[in-house]
């Protein structure tokens, strides 16, 4: 379950990132849509890293290098 949420968040980050690229290509320089997309990207990334830490701490995922 955790892995599915991680993959979904990663997909959302990629969509926000490439939406930013699309707006960078298409919108005039005065537009703020690239900035907004990248803000969403940073927000999702923060959520994902927090989730990874919680999941590893709670034992929902087993990071492969722990204890080796």
């Amino acid at each position: 379950m955790s892995k599915i949420v991680i993959l979904l968040l990663l997909t959302a980050i990629l969509i926000a990132l490439f939406a930013g690229l699309y707006f960078l290509m298409k919108e005039p320089a005065s537009s703020k849509r690239t900035l907004r997309s990248l803000m969403v990207r940073v927000g999702f990334t923060f959520v994902l890293i927090t989730l990874l830490l919680v999941a590893a701490y709670m034992g929902w995922i087993a990071p492969h290098a722990v204890g080796k």
């Binding site: 990663l10 980050i13 930013g20 690229l21 960078l24 320089a29 690239t34 990248l38």
Partner: peptide
């Protein structure tokens, strides 16, 4: 007028997201 800034900023975000992929698939999962 700041295309160079926005293109570079976007590139930095891209590099950051690639690292996120590396962190997940190389170091964790």
């Amino acid at each position: 007028n700041h295309f160079a800034f926005e293109a570079t900023a976007w590139y930095w975000h891209f590099v950051d997201v690639v690292w996120l992929g590396l962190f997940i698939f190389v170091y964790i999962l």
